[in-house]
Design a protein around this nucleic acid. Structure first.
Length: 191
DNA sequence: TGGACGATTGACT
DNA sequence: GTCAATCGTCCAA
């Protein structure tokens, strides 16, 4: 099993971590099935950012983002959806990267069942990706170096393969260019 | 302790 | 393009 033991490469700013995570794989084992996806769209958030959950300081909800790099921060939103982030930076500084979309590499059938749809809609959004991978609140705080969910680092993509834009669905700091995605990837979210 | 508001999605006009 | 669903979190009072 190829798992990472350290996350030094994520002990950096959210912006840099968000770009480094593009192309990396997230592996999930559930009910004896292995699911594997490639991260294709991310957004950066940190304590200095009014749009971040950590802007107001450490709370019970956002605690995972303060644990240091390599933890899964899962939050519940709109009364019905879960979204997941990968924490980055140093312990004590609330920062992380929202996984907005991913491309299925293995276990596509299982993901389609979870989502009850076919095509790119299985993972082309943050809550969709969580649902496809069966990620919910119980995994908040999980360290991404062990089963049943772990991260596999991949070589950094060339800058030219990455598109940078403003983030989606936020009202504060809406003009900050902190959304990153793999140019022309079919699974990148639309709205 | 009440109420506004979300790092969204899917259905509908 | 517009809008409802649905509830945990946070802050003002």
């Amino acid at each position: 099993m190829s798992t990472n033991t350290t996350f030094e490469w994520l002990e950096t700013s959210a912006n840099v971590a968000a770009k480094r995570l593009l192309g990396c794989e997230l592996v999930r084992e559930v009910e004896g099935v292995r699911l594997r996806v490639k991260i294709v769209e991310t957004e950066a958030y940190d304590q200095t950012d009014p749009a971040s959950h950590t802007f107001g300081g450490r709370t019970a909800r956002n605690n995972t983002m303060f644990l240091g790099a390599g933890h899964l921060y899962v939050y519940f939103t709109y009364g019905m959806h879960f979204c997941c982030n990968i924490s980055c930076g140093s312990e004590g500084f609330g920062s992380g990267v929202l996984i907005r979309a991913a491309e299925p590499l293995e276990g596509r059938d299982y993901m389609e069942q979870q989502r009850n749809v076919e095509g790119v809609a299985i993972t082309n959004g943050p809550a969709k990706t969580c649902q496809a991978l069966g990620i919910d609140r119980q995994f908040d705080g999980h360290t991404l170096s062990s089963a049943p969910i772990w991260l596999v680092r991949q070589p950094a993509l060339p800058e030219q393969a990455i598109t940078t834009t403003t983030r989606i669905g936020i009202s504060k700091a809406a003009s900050a260019p902190r959304r990153f995605y793999i140019t022309n990837n079919a699974y990148v979210s639309r709205r």
